[in-house]
């Protein structure tokens, strides 16, 4: 029995990690700029499509016809070589194989620039406007982003293979003293969890231990005073928006092998991650992370057949149900600060 529970716990981790990463970015934006960003799911989706784009670029091929050989159909054999392989040899092959992790390298600058452009271009004008209008404009932006992606990459999901060495499952059970092959866990999910732990740790460390982070935290607490001290807090907050976009984008990149991305990926995750944010408490970074993992794991437990037999359909609604209960009983969420968005 313990094995089953432990396995469900593990199964919840990767989804929980994705929720936590998106919710972390949402909370960063909300906590710094005070903007309710409905386009954040779209940033996750755009990140995923950075990976798609990178791979499509890497797998551009040259076709050479070898007249000395024939294919089984009798025609001259076509030899397809990816350009990178032609240029870089073995390194190119590795590059194609590891395209998903490598695409993080291009995702970071793209998402950073995109985030900063978005903030400077549009969201800047919405600081003083009501939250309803912020929701509306970012919702519109999300539609635009999703439709642009649809018109470029088409409506179908595009599978992204994971690196060949990282397929298969890890026998986690045997590492911690269970029998072999009782608790196995797909390797990539484990990597996703570790990756998210590193990113989350990195964001917290950045905010906690750098001067920049200290100023940002001060600005989150009292923007006006920090501004009066002669610090250009707006510029730092803009960078934080870019950082939130980067976090969402990286979360999207690494998620592609688990779920082939399509254009409405962002909308699918958006609703859930908003629920995660309010459960964790608006404006609380640890709350967002904790709630992300909590809801991911809860969802995983709710999909167990034993649970579904008792309460049919619970796996479909558990997250929303938890959100409703939390909001009604404890509107601040799990770790929300007093007075943030309360009414």
């Amino acid at each position: 029995m313990f094995e089953v529970i432990f396995l469900q716990f593990l199964n919840g981790l990767d989804k929980g990690a994705a929720y936590a990463l998106i919710a972390l970015g949402l909370t960063l934006v909300f906590g710094t700029l005070g903007v309710v960003n409905f386009a954040h799911g779209a940033l996750f989706m755009l990140g995923a499509f950075c990976a798609v784009m990178f791979r499509q670029f890497l797998t551009l091929e040259t076709v050479t016809i070898d007249p000395t050989q024939t294919s089984p159909w009798g025609a001259p054999l076509e030899i397809r070589t990816p350009l990178v392989q032609a240029w870089f040899g073995d390194f190119g092959a590795v590059l194609v194989n590891y395209s998903v992790p490598f695409s993080i390298l291009i995702t970071i600058p793209i998402m950073l620039l995109l985030g900063i452009a978005l903030e400077r271009g549009i969201i800047k004008h919405f600081y003083k406007r009501p939250h309803a209008e912020q929701i509306l404009v970012t919702f519109g932006l999300a539609i635009v982003a999703q439709e642009v992606i649809k018109s470029i990459f088409g409506p179908n999901p595009i599978p992204q293979p994971m690196p060949t060495d990282l397929r298969g499952a890890a026998d986690i059970g045997s590492w911690i003293g269970f029998q072999a092959n009782v608790i196995t866990y797909p390797l990539w999910r484990l990597i996703y969890f570790l990756f998210s732990a590193i990113v989350i740790g990195g964001v917290f460390a950045f905010l906690q231990f750098t001067t920049f982070g200290m100023v940002v935290r001060a600005g989150m607490a009292d923007r006006e005073t920090v501004g009066l001290l002669g610090i250009n807090i707006d510029r730092r907050f803009t960078i934080m928006f870019g950082l939130a976009a980067v976090v969402a984008g990286m979360a999207g990149v690494m998620y592609t092998p688990l779920l082939p991305p399509n254009y409405h990926l962002g909308m699918d995750f958006l609703v859930l991650s908003f629920v995660v944010v309010v459960v964790g408490g608006m404006g609380s970074l640890p709350g967002a992370v904790a709630a992300g993992f909590l809801l991911g794991i809860l969802q995983s437990f709710a999909s167990m057949t034993q649970v579904k037999d008792v309460i049919p359909g619970i796996d479909q609604i558990i997250i929303y149900l938890v959100a409703v209960v939390i909001l009604l009983v404890r509107p601040r969420g799990l770790m929300g600060r007093r007075g943030v968005m309360e009414s």
């Binding site: 309710v36 939250h131 309803a132 929701i135 609703v271 908003f274 629920v275 309010v278 608006m282 929303y320 959100a323 409703v324 909001l327 509107p331 968005m341 009414s343």
Partner: peptide
Amino acid sequence: GIYFSILTLA
């Protein structure tokens, strides 16, 4: 406010 929107959405 936003909590109402999220509740109805949920």
